[in-house]
Amino acid sequence: MAERKVCLSGSGLTKIYGFGRTRTVAVDHVDFNFYEGEVISIVGESGSGKTTLAKMLLGLTSTTEGEIYFQGQRRDISTQRKKLEYWKNIQAIFQDPFSSYNIFNKIDAVLLDCINMRGGHGFPRAKKVEMMTEACSFVNLKFEELTNKYPFELSGGQMQRLMIARIFLLMPKILIADEPTSMIDACSRATILDMLMGLRDEIGMTIIFITHDIGLAYYVSDSVYIMEKGKFVEYGTADEVILNPKEPYTKRLINDVPKIYEEWDLSTV
């Protein structure tokens, strides 16, 4: 196995919302090393702090304590310019794709923005169209049918694919996918997963996959981190964590998912 290179790490990372009676420790001193080119899953129940962690990694919310290191350097997003520079490297797909778009922007504008962000302002129109067409065909969408449409005219699955087309154009080093398939059907789920994994192979991206679905985490990831009440309670390779869980919380998550090959034991609740 080639040497694994850390691309994103955190130490003592903490987020506290509110104060006094409304004080919530959403993320509680987590430490991690995420390696380049891997798929890392973060699994936990709702409210365990997954989205808050994602937002800190993305620089969308401040950290209360702790540090984030990107490619070995302390992350610095103290100015707007540095932030934009950082966002060339790290991008996200969220659970509800509809929340991620400016509803007044047509779809070609959404994709055009991505090209511009990567320094394609000056490209001739034909070149831009070619890039957008390629991105759409990567996710099985037809660019000609999308131009002039607004994002809300698409179905949930189409929207999520459009999000992936954006990532195809943006080519970030790291993608954070926060519950990207939880709003879509089981049978479209496989398509979305295939596309994400295809993208990883295509541009060698690291994927941080956030999910409440431990089966999904098992299927897609190299490493799995289990999050309970803001803390990482267990981590390891997917096989270690899912087939040989050590923590009671991990065991419960696994036990409580409906099974088809083994007996699903209802007596535990």
Partner: peptide, 9 residues
């Protein structure tokens, strides 16, 4: 397209 956390998946 079934996904379950069971060995072999």
């Amino acid at each position: 397209s079934i996904i379950v956390p069971e060995e072999g998946l």
